Computed example of a mutant assay.
Amino acid sequence: MIDPAGGALGAAELDTAVAELAKSYDAEAGGFGASPKFPTSMVLEFLLRNADRTGSQQALDLVSGTCEAMARGGMYDQLSGGFARYSVDRFWRVPHFEKMLYDNGQRLRVYLHWWRQTGSPLAERVVRETGRFLIDELQTPEGGFASALDADSDGHEGTFYVFNPNQLMRTLGVEDGAWAAQLLGVTGPGTFERGFSTLQLQADPDDPQRWADVRAELLAVRAERTRPARDDKVVASWNGLAISALAEAGVLLDEPDFVAAAIKAAELAGRRPPGRQVRADVARRRRRSELRRAGRSRLSG
């Protein structure tokens, strides 16, 4: 690792970085700082590497607390996998519901590396579910991965994802509906807006088969709703994140579909004309430059 002045960072500097991160850690809710909370994938990767290098329990605890909180909150899609953009609140309860390819590519690897170091069943589940989300919901017919799913549908953010107790009762029946409401944190007043709640899974179900059945029924109901629009741009750099994550997860977790999807996307990237493989940040800088030139031209005219 290189510092801004050009010198190599030593063990002391890296350990100091861990200590500084610990100062901003939210011990009650996981993550760093206050709301809104963004999952800092590179920070978590750094902490995992530090824990592996030094045996630091502190570094590993920062990762474990954050990853568990994110995966159990409303920012993670408890029905079909994949993470929303960020959390509006400090408890990871209410997300900005947009799902981005580059976020999920990075988070998949974080959870994979967390699983590799700890054997966490939660981490393994999140990796498998998020990998399926990338393939099932973002893979394009050509084999690449689309950029994002919108936050909105039917004129409201989050409509596709949220439930209220009455919807659970109608779908599942009174007994299973009440059980699901308690399990998923769906309340009468709601945890989101208009009496709706995001779905949270703060504890593993005491009856896994019952949860599997409930999850399947809720997915079927959700499938009848208006789906958020998909941004079908295939951005090479973002696809690279998904390709590397799926390939690594596929090998480590013996998921051949993940490897096959990674290969298909990589082959698509190889077939694209070089001029079309423009990184998103480069494209944005180019557009800003064009706008500045246009503004100067108008002024000079």
Rank of each mutant, 00 (worst) to 15 (best):
M1E: 11
A5N: 07
A12P: 11
A12E: 12
E13L: 13
L14I: 03
D15H: 06
A17K: 05
V18W: 00
A19P: 01
A19N: 05
L21I: 09
A27G: 13
F32G: 02
F38G: 05
M42K: 09
N50I: 08
T54F: 00
S64K: 15
S64Q: 09
R72C: 10
S80C: 08
E98I: 07
L101A: 07
N104K: 00
N104L: 01
V110H: 02
Y111A: 00
H113M: 12
W115M: 02
G119E: 09
G119M: 12
L122P: 07
L122S: 08
R125K: 13
R128W: 01
E129R: 15
E129N: 10
I135E: 04
I135F: 09
T140R: 02
F145Q: 03
A146I: 08
S147V: 00
E157R: 07
T159W: 08
F163G: 00
P165C: 09
Q167I: 02
M169A: 14
R170F: 15
G173C: 08
W179P: 01
A181R: 00
T191E: 01
F196H: 10
S197C: 04
L201M: 08
Q202Y: 06
D206I: 02
A220G: 11
E224T: 14
T226C: 05
R230Y: 10
V235R: 00
W238V: 03
W238A: 04
G240P: 12
L241Q: 05
E248C: 12
A249H: 04
A260R: 14
A260S: 13
A266F: 10
L268F: 13
A280L: 14
D281Y: 12
R284Q: 15
R287S: 14
R287Q: 15
S300V: 11
